[in-house]
Simulated scan of single mutants.
Amino acid sequence: MGTPLGDFIRAKRDNTRPEDLGLPAHERRRAPGLRRTELAARARISVEYLTRIEQGRDRNPSDPVVNALADALSLDAAERAHLRYLSKISGGACAGHVRPAPPDRTVRPATRQILELLEPGVAFVTNRLGDVLAHTDSFALVMSDTGLLDAEQPNVTRYVFTHPRAGATFIDWHQVADEQVFSLWLGPSTESFEWFTADFAPVAGAEFTRRLHRHLPPPRVPLTMNHPRADRLRWNRETLELPAPDAQQLVIWLPADEATAAAVDQLRHRPQRTALRAV
């Protein structure tokens, strides 16, 4: 059985062009990407050792080895941070444990006050599993009629992979899907990740499981969506980590163009304004 660390290294190796690392590109290759022999040579470790790491037979490579692999793959800062994170959780990936409970959904009063201050901005509180824990009125307006907030406990990840309207809502559906799955790996605990994926993977299907073992950080790009009453909206997104015990994030959507700002302003002039809602 593989590990998150081994899956990431193998995925990154398969997606790295040899010519980007100064290696001959004209050689005949049975598969795209780097060969194990090439990566091992660049990291100055044996091919056999690299194979054990990729296959999950070695779950505790030292920090120097992890750093050497990061250098050999020319990882950027975000990818290096993710590699270090995976190296920590992979060491205990096979340890037995009692089935954990879902993460706490409580939103602190201070966080709710921040949301109030952000009105009429488009913002919500979430966690790495994708739960929508609280939101501003404007977020409700933007997501109205999309189906996201119809659930008793709204969850963006579940919405993206299981709701029939998700593909029409998010124009760049594949980008959003990549972001949601990658975010699972950044959760505060392996237990929460395993609790969510064990229940969700059978429902979400192949699109979810195929991404689950990719481990490649998606690029930061604007979010583009279709709104039932405002046509196309484009957002720049900022994510602020809340204090560690919360294990939550405050996400703010900022209009990426004047057309989006004008469309949202029109939505806000609806006759009835709902109250701040905690989910």
Rank of each mutant, 00 (worst) to 15 (best):
N15Q: 14
H227D: 11
R35H: 08
T51H: 03
F139L: 05
V65C: 01
R105Q: 11
P245I: 12
D178P: 00
P18T: 12
R59V: 10
F161T: 07
M225I: 10
I53C: 05
L83G: 01
L34V: 03
W185N: 04
R57I: 02
A41V: 02
A262Q: 13
R211P: 04
T106F: 14
L83C: 04
H269D: 14
L39H: 03
H26P: 00
T274W: 02
T37M: 04
E38Y: 09
E152D: 14
T209Y: 06
A40E: 08
S144L: 04
V66H: 06
R158M: 10
F208P: 06
V251L: 13
D145M: 07
D104T: 04
L212K: 13
I114T: 13
A275S: 13
H227F: 11
G92S: 11
L50H: 04
Y159T: 07
A168V: 01
V181Q: 10
E48P: 00
H174N: 15
G6N: 12
H215T: 06
P109H: 13
N236H: 15
A77T: 11
A275T: 03
A110D: 13
G91C: 00
V181W: 09
V142Y: 08
W253K: 05
P228R: 09
T157A: 13
L21R: 09
L148W: 09
V279E: 11
E194Q: 06
V65P: 01
L186G: 05
S192E: 10
F196Q: 08
A201G: 13
T260R: 03
A25D: 12
N127L: 03
V160H: 05
R232L: 14
K12V: 15
T162W: 02
F208H: 10
F161R: 04
K12H: 12
G121E: 10
P188R: 12
A78H: 05
E48S: 10
P228A: 15
P109L: 10
Q180H: 03
Q249W: 08
P64Y: 03
V156G: 02
A198D: 15
A204F: 02
V181D: 12
D199A: 13
V181M: 05
L141F: 06
P271Q: 06
T111D: 15
E191T: 01
A81E: 14
P4W: 09
H174P: 00
P61S: 02
A123K: 03
D58H: 00
F139M: 10
P109F: 12
P154L: 07
A198Y: 12
H174M: 04
Y159P: 06
R17W: 07
G130F: 01
A204C: 09
T197D: 12
E27S: 03
S189M: 08
P164I: 03
L23Q: 06
L184H: 08
T209H: 09
Y85D: 04
D63H: 00
Q175H: 14
A70V: 03
L23P: 01
A261G: 02
R220K: 15
A247C: 10
L233M: 15
L5F: 03
K88E: 14
S183Q: 10
Q180F: 01
G2Q: 13
L34Y: 09
Q180V: 06
G33T: 03
